[in-house]
Amino acid sequence: MEITTSTAPIFLGFASQKGGVGKSTLAEIISSILYYEKGINLLVVDCDMTQDSFYKLREREKATIADNPELVRQMRTYFKAQGRVAYRVLKSSPENAIATAEEHIKENPQEGIELVIFDFPGHAGTEELLELSQWMDYILSPIEADVQSMVSCLAYAKVVCDLGVSMQSSRIKDIMLLWNKVDRRVRNTIIEYYSNYIAEQGITLLSSRVYATHRFTHELAAYGVRNVFRSTYIAPAKALREGTGIDELVAELMKHIHLTPESHAHD
C-alpha cells in the first residue's frame, strides 16, 4: 500500500497489548498539544472499535458545547485566536484504518497533514495488532509497573522491532516504550529492573515519565475551558501540566520522530 500524498505524513500509533494503561488518554492529550500549541497539522484515526475512546470524547465535547451558549462563545474566541479549525477525528476498523487515513489525506490536500495518529485497538488479537503495526512509522506504547502486564508488553515490543528488520514491506522505524501512571510516592524497584532489562534488549525506552494524577480526567463538561486537561478541542491547561511529565514527553517525542516546531510555519 502506497501513501498517496506528495509528502508522506508520519504515521504514529498508540498501542498496547494491555488495557487500562492510559493509551487513549495519552493519544488525546498529546494530539491536542501537538496541534493547538505546536502547530502540527494532524489527523486522528480511532480504530479501537471496542472502546472508541477518542471518537467518543470528541462527540461528548460536541454535545457539551452545543448545549452551553457560553462555551460556544468561548470556543469561537479560542478558534479565532488559533486561526484554524479543530483537527479531524475519524473512526475506523483496524483493517481499514490505513485506507481511511489515506483517503482523507487525498481528498483534503489543503489540510497539509504532517502527522496521522492512530489509537490502536485495546484488546486486539496478535495478528490484528501486528498487521496494523507494520504500517506505522513509529509506535508509542505505554507501560505500567506491573510484572504480569510487562510480559505481554515486552513481547509485543520485541515482535514489532523484529518486523522493522525482517519485513521489507514494513514502514516501522521504532517502537517507543514509556513509563505511564508512575506513582511519585513509591520507590518502584520494578521500574528500575525493567528499565535495565529493556535497555539490554535494545528496545527504545523514552526517558520521560508520565506521573499518575486525577487531573488527566478533567473534561470540558465538568471543568470548563480554563481547567480542562483531556480534550480534542483544547490543549491541556498549562498550569495543570506542571509535574505530570507531559511537556517533557511531548518534547522528547517530537525530537525522536523528527517533528520539530522550528520546521512549522504555525509557531
Rank of each mutant, 00 (worst) to 15 (best):
G202W: 05
A8V: 04
V89Y: 13
E95S: 03
H258A: 15
Y138Q: 06
R209C: 07
T260N: 14
L177T: 06
I10T: 14
Q17L: 05
Q201E: 13
L205P: 11
S149V: 06
I10F: 07
D119G: 03
I117A: 09
R187E: 07
N196E: 15
K38A: 10
N41T: 07
P236D: 02
T50G: 10
V85P: 08
L240W: 08
V165G: 13
I172K: 04
A237T: 15
M254K: 10
L43W: 11
E252G: 14
K173N: 06
K181F: 09
V116C: 12
A99M: 13
K62V: 14
T64F: 15
M49D: 08
P142F: 14
M167P: 10
E102F: 06
A99E: 13
R187T: 12
E144K: 09
I257F: 11
N196G: 15
D48P: 09
P236R: 00
F14R: 00
V225Y: 09
G19L: 00
Y156T: 11
A222Y: 06
S166E: 01
T244Y: 04
Y211L: 01
T5A: 07
A212H: 04
A8F: 03
F216Q: 00
I139A: 12
K238S: 14
N41S: 12
A145Q: 08
M1G: 13
E70V: 12
L249H: 03
H264W: 05
A212R: 02
Y194E: 08
M136F: 12
S16G: 02
A212C: 01
E28Q: 15
V21W: 03
G125N: 11
K56I: 04
P9A: 10
Y138G: 11
Y138S: 12
L154R: 02
W179S: 03
I29E: 00
L129H: 11
L130Q: 04
L42F: 01
K91T: 13
M136H: 08
V182W: 09
A63T: 09
I29T: 04
S53K: 05
Y223M: 02
D48Q: 13
F11Y: 15
A101D: 04
G202N: 05
Q110S: 04
A265Y: 08
Q134F: 02
I113K: 03
I29N: 00
I191S: 07
G243L: 01
D119E: 00
K158W: 12
S6W: 08
R230G: 07
H266T: 05
L115Y: 02
P261T: 09
Q148Y: 12
S53E: 00
I29M: 00
T25M: 06
L57W: 00
Y156D: 08
S133M: 09
S149C: 05
S195V: 06
P69T: 02
T100I: 10
T25V: 09
L115M: 01
V182H: 09
R209H: 04
T244A: 04
Y156Q: 13
A101K: 03
E70I: 12
R184S: 10
V45N: 03
S263W: 15
L90A: 01
G243N: 07
S169I: 14
T126D: 10
E111N: 13
L43S: 14
E59M: 08
S207A: 06
P109V: 10
L42T: 06
S133K: 03
R185K: 06
Y194T: 06
C153K: 07
M49V: 13
A199G: 08
